[in-house]
Design a protein around this nucleic acid. Structure first.
Lengths: 205, 205
DNA sequence: GTGCTTCGATACGACCGCGTTCCGTAACCG
DNA sequence: CGGTTACGGAACGCGGTCGTATCGAAGCAC
């Protein structure tokens, strides 16, 4: 920790000597995410991580003080900024959002990372909070906003707790994903039924 | 493994020598569940487990060949046989079932064990299958049976995938429980709204 | 009692992973 | 050029954990 990390806005003071390699930093974080997806946080060893990133251990510890610190940093890179979906057709929007999430879970690296991260975060409250605040909560906020607009338009009845409604949408999918080893992945049909049931149940009457 | 473990039906052959202590066995399993609840599977060490159970390590290894084997065995003891609820009032039954599960999650040992077990099982497919088949699936089956009766009675519309409907009921609660470190425990109100939304969405029209 | 097994306790060997420290080399500044 | 810091690689000390082995004592059948 001999050099200031990128903190706050402004110019990063440039000291003497060889500058830190951004390439090494990226390689470390990439390797961490790969290993997280492949084997889970518990099985990541700093030695294997360094080897996989093609980096010396000192290069890792020069940037992060321990494994948790590194993981938190890596996790933040997974969260690409989600975008609001609002075509005006509530049902189509929700199904698009949910099925997009489902496809992500089924195929991309972040889909393999999610359960691993859950596993690690359950045993590490600090990691859980970071994961929630930086990766999950922002996406939920967009969905809640979409739902709020539907309430304002009179499509959904008022008086609903939209946060809980959000749970009713995402909960079943995450639930299925986590149990995937015992039941297989959630299907397009199961997601669609889940959305429809919740949607009908939340409509104005 | 010099003596047959209790397997299958019938008389356990009684060999010569000092018999195994049932008290020690119970103490080991109790301690394992306690530690699982307190610190998670990853942090259970056989030495600490033996100490907590007031037992020598050899006494453990005489019965189980490794930690996973022991955990699987311990987990099976948590699953008390759930019972069918059917008063005739579908909504009341579902709320009773769900709120009962919620209360369990909030207070009892098994409620603290569940997330820990999820954490461990996500990284251990075999443990996941055991957990699912022995602890979760049987309870779901009862709920599915209750739902099927509602379908037969014309209360719920036919054509629904009841297994997915079950996900829509349990998913949100488990989801909230797992994220509890970031959001707090699910409330009675959030559960009730979840049930109501799903129920209304699944009614016959 | 004799023979068998388990008891709790402790010691042991082997391994593993963390985080540090040391190389010789490389990159950047003045 | 000299000064400084980072690089990849390797070695190190340390603590922890596994699973086994061994101890004297204790329980049960014969």
């Amino acid at each position: 920790m001999s050099r200031a990390l990128a903190g706050g806005a402004g110019v990063i003071p440039r000291g003497p000597g060889r500058p830190r390699s951004e390439k090494a930093e990226a390689a470390i974080l990439d390797a961490a995410l790969q290993m997280l997806a492949d084997e889970g946080a518990a099985r990541i060893t700093m030695e294997a991580l360094a080897a996989r990133a093609g980096v010396g251990k000192a290069t890792i510890y020069r940037r992060w003080k321990n494994k948790t610190d590194l993981l938190v940093d890596a996790v933040m890179r997974v969260s690409e900024p989600a975008q609001l979906v609002d075509t005006g057709d509530l049902r189509a929007d929700l199904i698009a959002i949910m099925d997009n999430a489902r496809r992500k879970m089924g195929s991309t690296v972040s889909g393999r990372i999610m359960p691993r991260l859950m596993s690690a975060a359950i045993d590490d409250p600090e990691l859980m909070r970071t994961y929630w605040e930086r990766a999950i909560q922002p996406r939920r906020a967009l969905v809640v906003a979409r739902l709020q607009r539907a309430v304002d338009a009179g499509e959904l009845r008022s008086g609903l707790d939209l946060d809980s409604l959000c749970d009713s949408l995402f909960g079943p999918m995450v639930y299925r994903k986590l149990f995937a080893a015992a039941r297989g992945l959630p299907t397009r049909e199961s997601i669609a039924q889940g959305v429809d049931v919740v949607l009908i149940g939340a409509l104005s009457r």
